[in-house]
Design a protein around this nucleic acid. Structure first.
Lengths: 216, 216
DNA sequence: ACCGCGTGGAGGTCAAGATCGGCGTGCTTC
DNA sequence: GAAGCACGCCGATCTTGACCTCCACGCGGT
């Protein structure tokens, strides 16, 4: 989605007025660029205002403070990842396809076509010690882990704690590998990467003894 | 190892002198507690000095600045994790046992008997945007990933990029699952957790088509 | 002309990293 | 025994970045 950021400073010039909702979107876009590039702590409201081509009081007209601005962006990203994961899980009853879908959701989340790097707000936040941030990041992780644990438990004879451990391992693998893949500038195609990881993880899951089977 | 922190403030009292090297160790112990609990940004040098029972100038006598103090701790943790992983890999030629060893190294790293939580400096740093910090964290990750990729490549017919992707997935799974396991207060024993994850990951790896085999 | 709205130049406030200038103790030397 | 030195230490303060706010401006609609 093309943001308003780049065009505003040049086309609108300083002091150019926007309707309130357009301005808010524009501020969010500018803030996202600065937070993604610098992290929360090294991002100054001055920098964000400058990037947006406005003065600082304008930021405070739309957001109570720096943290709220950050949380607004975080919420958007959390919602996007959560929705993608839910959609992947809901799309099929086949457990292997579900794993494939979740992996794809993670890879697509880090590699959105606009290349905005907003995944870092979720996966690489430097504000993880803030309760509001931690709550949001953990909520997405928890939601995904629980749903995948349902899948794992359904396909193995494992109890819930074991299923949750493996589910956490799976989502951890997805998150870290997707970020590595992007950082290494996509050494293999996303499709191949997802298929490879699905193979790794599904072979592992599907070869667990099922309910009632003797361990081998 | 019992630190000097707790005893110094009560037994030595304010202004109590220590030899330079003993003081440095004590300052590091105090700093670690504060950085682990609060993260880099929310940890103040005042807090660290107070925890150590000294004044702030004493910190600056031993460390050029806050960042250098943090890096000293980070280096120690990076060295410990790296050494544990190398030891696990060197202990056997059996690839499955190597995976087991690496997983164990991660779980033991997060769950050291002193419960100091120092793993957070590596796995949950809020200073990841600082070049010096990022370099150290990535060096450990890279070292582990390369070594495990050697194992993966040795046991599958995968090319290097594919092996590195799976290796990253494996170490990502280990890191995230070990932290979850600790945060959930060890819902299953460490041994069971490691065995379960080894099963997941090893079944996945060992069932890849080998060199020259047709894909099935 | 007035009002509402969106806006900005300037600055207040303060937390926190870092430093200044000096203190006190114990040992050595005369 | 006194003086000097080395070492480890600290109260007070400086400096500065950055969050947030004050107070007024300008434009467009009525």
């Amino acid at each position: 989605m093309s943001s308003l950021v780049g065009t505003d400073s040049s086309e609108l010039g300083r002091g150019a007025r926007l309707p309130r909702s357009a301005r808010r979107k524009q501020l969010l876009a500018a803030a996202q660029q600065v937070f993604v590039a610098n992290g929360y702590h090294a991002a100054a409201m001055d920098d964000i205002a400058e990037r947006a081509g406005v003065s600082k009081p304008v930021l405070y007209q739309h957001f109570p403070g720096k943290l709220e601005l950050y949380l607004a962006l975080l919420d958007t990203q959390a919602e996007m990842l959560g929705a993608a994961v839910n959609e992947a899980l809901a799309a099929t009853d086949d457990n292997r396809a579900r794993i494939h879908g979740v992996l794809t959701a993670y890879f697509e989340f880090v590699d959105r076509s606009d290349g905005d790097g907003a995944f870092r707000l979720i996966f690489e936040t430097d504000l993880g010690n803030d309760p509001a941030v931690r709550e949001r990041v953990e909520a997405v992780a928890q939601q995904t882990m629980q749903a995948v644990a349902d899948t794992v438990a359904g396909d193995t004879g494992l109890d819930r704690a074991q299923a949750e451990l493996l589910s956490t391992a799976l989502t951890g693998a997805a998150q870290v590998a997707a970020r590595w893949w992007l950082a290494e500038d996509r050494p293999i195609s996303q499709e191949d990467a997802v298929r490879l990881m699905e193979s790794l993880l599904w072979r592992g899951i599907s070869n667990f003894p099922r309910q009632g089977e003797a361990g081998h």
